[in-house]
C-alpha cells in the first residue's frame, strides 16, 4: 500500500533539493534509483539462473523474485527524469577533452538516450515476459542471461561510471551487477520469503556467497588502484576519502558484511528464517551505505545530497514496496491454496 504522506514528503524533499542545487539533487535521485532498481535487476538474474540450473531455492523463492522484477518497468520509466538533465548530472563535455572520440561516439545525449532506451527497455520487457508461475525454459534463460549481462553492463557503464569523469574500472560493471543480486537476496531474506528451513538454508548460502563476491570485487578494485596509485584512477578513491565519506564503507563492511558473515556461518542460523531476516536487513543496509558511497561523493558535494537521496528513497522505495507486497500477498494466497489442494 502506498502511503500518500510518505510520497508527498519525499516529493517535497526532492523538489526542494532541485531548487537548491539541480546537479546534487539529480545525483541523490540517481542513487535512490540505483538502489531501488537493485532488487529487480538482481531478481531477474536469479530467475534466469534458476531457469538454467533448477533447484528447490528457485522454486520456493520464485514468487518473491517475480514480485521484485514487477517493479522493473516502473523504475525504468523513472529514468526519464534524470534523462532530461544529463548535462547537469554528468557535467559533459567536461572530462571528455583528452579522450578523442569518446564524446562523439559514446558519451553524448542522443547516444546515451538510445542506449538507455534499449538496455532498460530490454530489461523491462524481460521482466514483463518472464513467466512468474513456472520456471523459465533453459533456452530462454540462457539467451536471456547473455543479453541481460550486456544490458546491465551498459546500465552500469552509462549511468554510474561517468559520474566521475575520466575514471574507468574494468571490474566496475561486475561489481554493480553482483551487488544487485546481493540486494535481491537480502530483501528476499528480509521479507522472510523462505519459510521452510531447507529453503532458508539455500537462501542463506546464496546470500553468503553473494556477500563474499561483492566484498571480493570491491576489495580487488580498491587493491589494484591503491597499488598502482595512478592519479586518474585513485582520484575516485580520493574523492571518497574526504570528509565523513569513509565512515560509509567502514560501516557497510562491519554491519552489512562482517556481522552477517559471522552470524550466517553456522548452518543452524541459515536455517532459521528469523535470523535470516535480521541478517538480510543488515546486508541491505550495507548495500545502501556502499552504494551511497559509490555514487554520492562523485563531483562537488553539499548537504543538498541528503534531502535529495532521502526524498528519492522515500518516493521510489515507497512505490517499489507498494508493488511487491501486493503481488506477494496474492502469490502467498495462491500458494496456500495449492498446499490445501495437495
Amino acid at each position: 500500500m502506498i502511503r500518500p504522506l510518505t510520497l508527498a514528503a519525499g516529493l517535497a524533499l526532492l523538489v526542494l533539493a532541485a531548487f537548491l542545487d539541480l546537479s546534487l539533487a539529480l545525483r541523490g535521485l540517481l542513487f535512490a534509483w540505483a538502489f531501488c532498481l537493485g532488487p529487480a535487476l538482481g531478481a531477474l538474474a536469479l530467475l534466469l539462473t534458476h531457469g538454467l540450473t533448477g533447484g528447490r531455492w528457485g522454486d520456493a523463492l520464485r514468487p518473491t523474485f517475480a514480485a521484485f522484477t514487477a517493479t522493473l518497468p516502473w523504475l525504468a520509466l523513472v529514468a526519464v527524469v534524470p534523462a532530461f538533465f544529463l548535462g547537469s548530472l554528468y557535467g559533459w563535455p567536461h572530462g571528455l577533452e583528452e579522450r578523442p572520440g569518446v564524446g562523439t561516439y559514446w558519451l553524448n545525449e542522443p547516444l546515451f538516450l538510445a542506449r538507455a532506451a534499449l538496455s532498460l527497455g530490454f530489461l523491462a520487457a524481460l521482466a514483463l515476459f518472464l513467466p512468474a508461475g513456472r520456471r523459465a525454459g533453459v533456452g530462454v534463460s540462457a539467451v536471456g542471461l547473455v543479453l541481460y549481462v550486456v544490458a546491465v553492463t551498459v546500465v552500469a557503464l552509462d549511468w554510474l561510471m561517468p559520474l566521475d569523469p575520466k575514471w574507468v574500472s574494468t571490474t566496475y560493471p561486475a561489481l554493480v551487477a553482483v551487488q544487485t543480486i546481493l540486494e535481491a537476496l537480502a530483501l528476499a531474506a528480509l521479507f522472510r520469503a523462505a519459510t521452510e528451513p531447507a529453503v532458508a538454508e539455500d537462501l542463506g548460502g546464496l546470500l553468503l556467497a553473494a556477500l563474499l563476491a561483492v566484498v571480493y570485487l570491491a576489495f580487488m578494485q580498491y587493491l589494484v588502484m591503491w597499488y598502482s596509485n595512478l592519479p586518474e584512477k585513485v582520484a575516485w578513491y580520493a574523492a571518497r576519502e574526504a570528509g565523513f565519506w569513509p565512515v560509509l564503507p567502514v560501516l557497510a563492511f562491519l554491519a552489512g558484511g562482517l556481522v552477517p558473515f559471522l552470524v550466517l556461518l553456522p548452518r543452524a542460523s541459515r536455517r532459521d528464517p528469523g535470523t535470516l531476516a535480521v541478517m538480510g536487513g543488515l546486508v541491505l543496509l550495507g548495500v545502501l551505505l556502499h552504494l551511497a558511497w559509490m555514487v554520492l561523493p562523485a563531483g562537488p558535494g553539499g548537504w543538498v545530497l541528503l534531502p535529495a537521496a532521502g526524498g528519492g528513497l522515500l518516493v521510489l522505495g515507497g512505490l517499489a514496496l507498494a508493488l511487491p507486497t501486493g503481488h506477494r500477498q496474492r502469490e502467498a494466497k495462491r500458494g496456500a491454496h495449492g498446499a490445501h489442494d495437495a
Binding site: T170, T171, V224, S228
Partner: peptide, 17 residues
C-alpha cells in the same frame, strides 16, 4: 600483472577475470 603500471595490465578486472 594488475599491480604493475603497464598498459593492459593495470586492470581492476584482472583478479576476477
Amino acid at each position: 600483472f594488475a599491480a604493475s603500471l603497464m598498459p593492459g595490465w593495470a586492470e581492476t578486472v584482472f583478479p576476477p577475470y
